[in-house]
Amino acid sequence: MRLNDLLEQKKAAIIKEWFNLIVNSYPSDTAYFLKKQKDHFANPVGTTILHSLKPLFDEILNGMDHKAIVSYLDPMIRIRAVQVMFSPSQAVAFIFSLKKAVRSNLKKRENQDDHIINELIIFESKIDEVGLMAFDIFMKCREQVYKLKANGERNRVFRAFQRAGLVYEIPDGKRPGVMNVLKSSNTAVAPLDDRVD
């Protein structure tokens, strides 16, 4: 329990450093905006992170409630999942820099205390767990993007065609290969392509 008290005490300093580490891990062009931001202007990423770190830290420290953690992580990662400047590792790396922030905020004496070290190992494994959760969220978001990318438009148009009876579904039990035979002998769609406005 002693580590928890220590962390609770040094929370402000740890979060400050955590944020700092996160910002410094960004591509320089973005970091410039994150770092220099005086008010909430600039990149939503910076502010989202800023606002989510404390509750997230509290949750790691005290609760580790899966649902709560996801709810703090989701907004941070959801935005980054569509900001192509981040590689997947960059998108979730910030979780792990909490380890560094915690360690550098413990005094030497505290760092050598066996009891604390043991607790620290447990704490860090919780961070790993959160990191993995972050990765899950990131992947979920990316999958969603790709689903939208791959199917969204086509599906909608296709459904409309299908409903209009312009498309034949393959009847069960028939030999595959004869697909999507159009109803009329005339092609209904001009041969250029299938575009929606």
Binding site: A160, A164, L166, S184, N186, T187, A188, V189, A190, L192, D193, D194, R195, V196, D197
Partner: peptide, 23 residues
Amino acid sequence: APVAFCYRTGNHMGIQPHAYVDM
């Protein structure tokens, strides 16, 4: 593409007249 379609068939989708009516 929509520009070309629209120019030719009157609409972005490239829908020919009979298909439009069908729809």
